[in-house]
Design a protein around this nucleic acid. Structure first.
Length: 566
RNA sequence: UGGGGUGUCGUCAAGCGGUAAGACACAGGUCUUUGGAACCUGGAUGCGGAGGUUCGAAUCCUCCCACCCCAGCCA
């Protein structure tokens, strides 16, 4: 972690841990774990959990394990494992040699199941899936006991070992805990512990045809790893009695405490694995690392920094309230970080030729430009200035509205770090009326200094020398969805996809120094926003930049209001 | 109509019986060679509602209301 990360705020989980430390509940030990299922990529919601678990471990001098919760072979894969490892590491966390897999515990878990059977606390049930559902009862009605509930220990042992041996069809039997079919908590109505599933597991291959369920595997995995605080999300609150029940029946020397917190929701995006997979599979995005995705991989490619994401996770807090955090807070954290560290650079996204009529043809001056106006330590560079420049199309308007103080006929504007120029003419396309060129004169006295008579120019615009700049493609990314909560209505969330979430600008011009920029490096394009060299598509022949986030644009706000008032 | 949770500013979120932190967003302003950044100011007489206890309640009690989760051989 860097120093600029805010100090970890306290929260109810840390309070519990501090209390436990005070009472020496776990011998002063703090051990957490982050247990993703490798069936999808990690997203910003996982980042909250990662920061919580690893953050707590670091803060209290404990440990945090990375554990693949891979108990359901369907959908799990090595690709996901590798992405998870990469993402957690990229976020800045280290589990040293404690990368674990629930699938590594299959043998132990099986033994625990035997123990349960021997204690008369589990039985093999031969009801069909439909029957089990019927027997389970409803929210308001108690369930019925399975006719197989009172099989003898011997029979259960025999059946269970034959389940493992592959003697039965998928679904023919399950192992169930013998708890209470009348429990008001449905989780406790003889929950299924093991199912027969002939599926290839990405790690254990075909060694197993029975797989433990989450409730059975999770608490025991925690216990095996000697976790002290098992932090999970709210939807598992109903499962906590079962978590405790299983550990209470078995002969284990570690009984972790499960604590639940509210998962993160973010406006203008979705954070459900199922839906993210749908976006990828149906091609709404280019992949898990599409820069519009709320995945760690997507945000990394977009140019977000781990520091910004960690800081965001600190600032959103940890509590039990259902919450939807404003996307603007994430964007704020990204700007805050990048403002400090991104070197400034000149880039013109939508070029408009600006010709300085009174500037000598062929003359080139070197203009000294600081790489960061507030931080001289970041040095400076020299930018070529010449008669023909490119400026931003937005920075010239023939009929400027009120409060517009950029270039317009007869108006003056400062070319950043260079001269003040005055617009003396416009060349338009005869047919379309489109402005093709802007002609200006410049006052040689004003080079990078105040006007001689002291009067100031309000507008400052960025520029690039036509002959000395290089072409680039810039991808302008915006929010993935056009509404704050795409899943609010029951209908298809994809209809709320923002059609303008990506705009590709193919003929941008950037200062030539950017030619050798390393993939992933981040810059502020002056007055526009923060951009990074796309790690996948950019090359020395074809520069490709991603817009990470725009600068706050108070002119856009004014212009918007003016439009509304009309 | 069962059980488990949660309700404090637009959004997060502190508060733990002594008189409503902070952040983002928003609105004004200062400054400015980024309409950026930075800085300043403004906002809940109010804590889901109604009662009660108390000198004193967001904090304790009672009742009510709203929302979320649970009926996968998913996690």
């Amino acid at each position: 972690m860097t120093q600029k990360d805010s100090p970890p705020a306290t929260d109810f989980i840390r309070e519990i841990i501090e209390e436990d430390l005070k009472t020496n509940k776990h011998g002063g030990r703090v051990a957490t774990r982050f247990p993703p299922e490798p069936n999808g990529y990690l997203h910003i919601g996982h980042a909250k959990s990662i920061c919580l678990n690893f953050g707590i471990a670091a803060q209290y001098h404990g440990t945090c394990n990375l554990r693949m919760d891979d108990t359901d072979p369907s959908g799990e894969s090595l690709e996901y494992v590798e992405s998870i490892i990469q993402d957690v590491r990229w976020l800045g966390f280290d589990w040293q040699d404690r990368l674990f897999y629930a699938s590594d515990y299959f043998e132990q878990l099986y033994e625990f199941a035997i123990q349960l059977i021997k204690k008369g606390k589990a039985y093999v049930c031969s009801l069909s899936a439909d029957e089990i559902r019927e027997y389970r009862g409803t929210l308001t009605e108690p369930g019925k006991e399975s006719p197989y509930r009172n099989r003898s220990v011997e029979e259960n042992l025999d059946l269970f070992s034959r389940m493992r041996a592959g003697e039965f069809e998928d679904g023919a039997h399950v192992l169930r805990a013998k708890i209470d079919m009348a429990s008001p908590n449905i989780t406790m109505r003889d929950p299924i512990l093991y199912r027969i599933k002939r599926a290839h597991h990405y790690r254990t291959g075909t060694r197993w045809c029975i797989y433990p369920m989450y409730d059975f595997a999770h608490c025991l995995s925690d216990s095996i790893e000697k976790v002290t605080h098992s932090i999970c999300t709210l939807e598992f609150e109903n499962n906590r009695p079962l978590y405790d029940w299983i550990l209470d029946q078995l002969d284990v020397d570690c009984h972790p405490q499960q604590i639940e917190f509210a998962r993160l929701n973010l406006s203008y995006t979705i954070l459900s694995k199922r839906r993210l997979i749908e976006l990828v599979r149906k091609g709404y995005v280019t992949g898990w690392d599409d820069p519009r995705m709320p995945t760690i991989a997507g945000m990394r490619r977009r140019g977000y920094t781990p520091e910004a994401i960690r800081n965001f996770c600190v600032r959103i807090g940890v509590a039990k309230n259902e919450n939807t955090v404003d996307m603007s807070l994430l964007e704020h954290c990204v700007r805050e970080d990048l403002n400090e560290r991104a070197p400034r650079v000149m880039a013109v996204l939508r070029p408009l030729r600006l010709i300085i009529d009174n500037y000598p043809e062929g003359q080139v001056e070197e203009i000294e430009c600081p790489n960061h106006p507030q931080n001289p330590d970041m040095g400076s560079r020299r930018l070529p200035f010449s008669k023909v420049l490119y400026i931003e199309q937005d920075d010239f308007l023939e009929k400027p509205p009120k409060k517009y103080y950029r270039l317009a006929p007869g108006r003056e504007v400062r070319l950043r770090y260079a001269y003040i120029v005055k617009c003396v003419g416009v060349v338009k396309d005869e047919k379309t009326g489109e402005v093709k060129e802007v002609h200006c004169t410049c006052d040689p006295e004003t080079r990078n200094g105040p006007l001689p008579d002291g009067h100031k120019v309000e507008g400052v615009i960025h520029w690039v020398s036509a002959d000395h700049s290089v072409p680039a493609e810039v991808r302008l990314y915006d929010r993935l969805f056009r509404v704050p909560d795409p899943t609010a209505e029951r209908d298809d969330f994809t209809k709320y996809l923002n059609p303008r979430s990506l705009e590709t600008l193919a003929s941008c011009r950037v200062e030539s120094g950017l030619k050798g920029a390393a993939p992933g490096s981040r810059y502020q394009f002056e007055r526009l926003g923060y951009f990074c060299v796309d790690a996948k598509d950019s090359s020395s022949n074809k520069l490709v930049f991603n817009r990470i986030v725009s600068l706050r644009d108070s002119w856009a706000k004014i212009a918007n209001q003016q439009q509304k008032n009309e």
